[in-house]
């Protein structure tokens, strides 16, 4: 059995340690429920520690996906020397986008629950608006999910693997360009309930956000990102292995047919 490189073991151990710290300390620490924090937020402010990191992890995973998509295009360029099979880069782009989608869904779910207990307390639990308020950032997150679901639809509708790799890489790069206004610009135009740099709720502005929460949030965020990288590593290794096995099998068949 091959030994893992020390770097790999270190980041995995770090992911586990940081997540354990964020889980245990985040749930047990005394957080001040001051009027500055917004009276309706109360103890549910802890959800900040488990809601916000999802989005940063998603952006990192989408960034990795973007990087591998660019590599697919460079590897299929006939003017350049082909150092690696572009289909392997495509596997990585695909799997990291998948983990990004997972974080997107987790972020939406934690957001829905949080919105229920902080923004929409007064509403009946059976009404739709008690769970989903069409807040601008919430809507943008949903649109980001739709963009990447469309990416998978596109992948499913192309048969030829090489063509699939190339076309979906082009779409992925184009989609990432629209992710930037979705998360950084539109929330500033449309006033909403989320705290933003200039407007919206004032829950987590400099004076409102508690230092304690900060000391848990940032390490936890790194933990989320590293855990995402780990999941992505496992998924892409498994798919690459399947790809290699298929290649090996077809080589065997080729050899057999030429020997006989």
């Amino acid at each position: 059995m091959t030994k893992q490189s020390p770097l790999r073991i270190t980041y995995k151990a770090l992911a586990v340690a940081l997540l354990l710290y964020a889980l245990i300390y985040g749930l047990l620490a005394e957080i001040p429920v001051s009027p500055q924090m917004g009276s309706q937020l109360g103890q549910s402010a802890r959800n900040l520690l488990y809601h916000v990191p999802n989005w940063f992890a998603m952006l990192v995973m989408m960034g990795i996906s973007l990087y591998h998509s660019i590599r697919v295009l460079r590897l299929t360029d006939p003017d350049r020397e082909q150092t690696e099979n572009p289909l392997r880069a495509d596997i990585k782009a695909n799997e990291s986008a998948r983990v990004g989608v997972m974080f997107n869904i987790l972020g939406l779910l934690t957001g829905i629950i949080w919105a229920r207990v902080s923004w929409n307390v007064a509403k009946e639990a059976t009404s739709f608006s008690a769970w989903w308020g069409w807040d601008p950032i919430q809507t943008c997150a949903l649109i980001a999910l739709l963009i990447y679901l469309a990416y998978y639809l596109l992948r499913n509708s192309i048969e030829d693997p090489e063509q699939k790799a190339k076309v979906s890489a082009v779409y992925n790069i184009f989609a990432f360009m629209t992710l930037i206004p979705l998360f950084f610009v539109i929330p500033r135009i449309l006033d909403g309930l989320h705290p933003t740099a200039d407007g919206g709720a004032v829950l987590f502005k400099k004076e409102g956000m508690n230092n304690l929460l900060r000391t848990i949030l940032y390490p936890g965020m790194i933990g989320f990102i590293l855990m995402g990288v780990w999941i992505y590593e496992i998924r892409s290794r498994a798919t690459t292995l399947r790809f290699r096995w298929q290649e090996w099998q077809s080589n065997q068949e080729y050899d057999n047919s030429h020997q006989s």
């Binding site: 980001a144 739709l146 963009i147 509708s157 048969e159 989609a175 979705l182 539109i186 135009i189």
Partner: peptide, 23 residues
């Protein structure tokens, strides 16, 4: 480049256009 082109066009373009349209 894909099959069932016209459906795909709507599905691919709609989420990309929504941010523009919102602004």
């Amino acid at each position: 480049k894909a099959q069932n082109q016209s459906t795909l066009l709507a599905v691919l373009s709609f989420p990309l256009i929504v941010p523009l349209l919102l602004m």
